[in-house]
Amino acid sequence: MRYEAPSSFEEASGLLAGETGVTRILAGGTDVLVQLRSGLVEPDLIVDIKRIPGAKDITRTDDGGWRIGAAVSGAEMGEHAELKAAWPGIVEAVELIGSTQVQGRCTMAGNLCNGSPAADSVPAMIAADAIAEVVGPSGTRDVYVEEIPLGPGRTRLEKGDVIAAIRLPARPERAGDAYLRFIPRTEMDIAVVSAGVSLCLDASGKVLDARIGLGAVGPTVVNAAAAADAIIGTTLDDAAIAAMIEAVATACSPIDDKRGTVKFRTKVAGVLAKRAALKAAERAKA
């Protein structure tokens, strides 16, 4: 195995594109090191992106949004008061990843590219309509986070592609987001089901726009667009919530395993989506 720590994303992309064997990008390493240890993956090349200038920066974009470098850790996001105020749901999702120790290293891009349908930050990023800035062999392009997951452990990124940053849009007035997951204990577990909701309200309290991401209810994190449609234009009254829960259930195609049955996951997805929507609305009004 070769270890490289390039000083630009272009160089990182070139190294990855030029390697014929198995490659891994090393952000926080909290998935990669576990894979190395288990012998599950034997990479020929590891490309560490943490020494790339800017990779650890959280900055504002010209349009008032946010740009979070691909090597920014969960702990660093949690300590960023302004980011937390703008996108509390994103930050609470990231902060749920692992222990204090894991928080010191784990990244959103790594969480996304590891390809787990239960990855905690992904439903929140999909709800936020986040964009990944991808540097590839033919240049830099923007890809919606929603388009990246392909299946368990698989993404639509291609050989030589590296995410340089995750961008979050500017927040309109009266906007809020929230993320909730169900686990059988209070810490250190993988989501059995999860839901992220981002919405904004008009002056009268009606939902102007909404997006809902669901975790661990299918082979990839799901963008539950029909469920979001069910609450747009409403005041989140009981009928709207009931319609949303029904649409959530339709969007679920979970597996049955010892951690949760299909019936349980489908039911809890609706409950979490409801609670996340109400919490997001409360934040939007605050």
């Binding site: 909290t30 560490d48 894991v102």
Partner: peptide, 10 residues
């Protein structure tokens, strides 16, 4: 951090 989740090179 966990030193088992980090390469020496890092």
């Amino acid at each position: 951090v966990c030193s088992c989740l980090m390469l020496g090179a890092e």
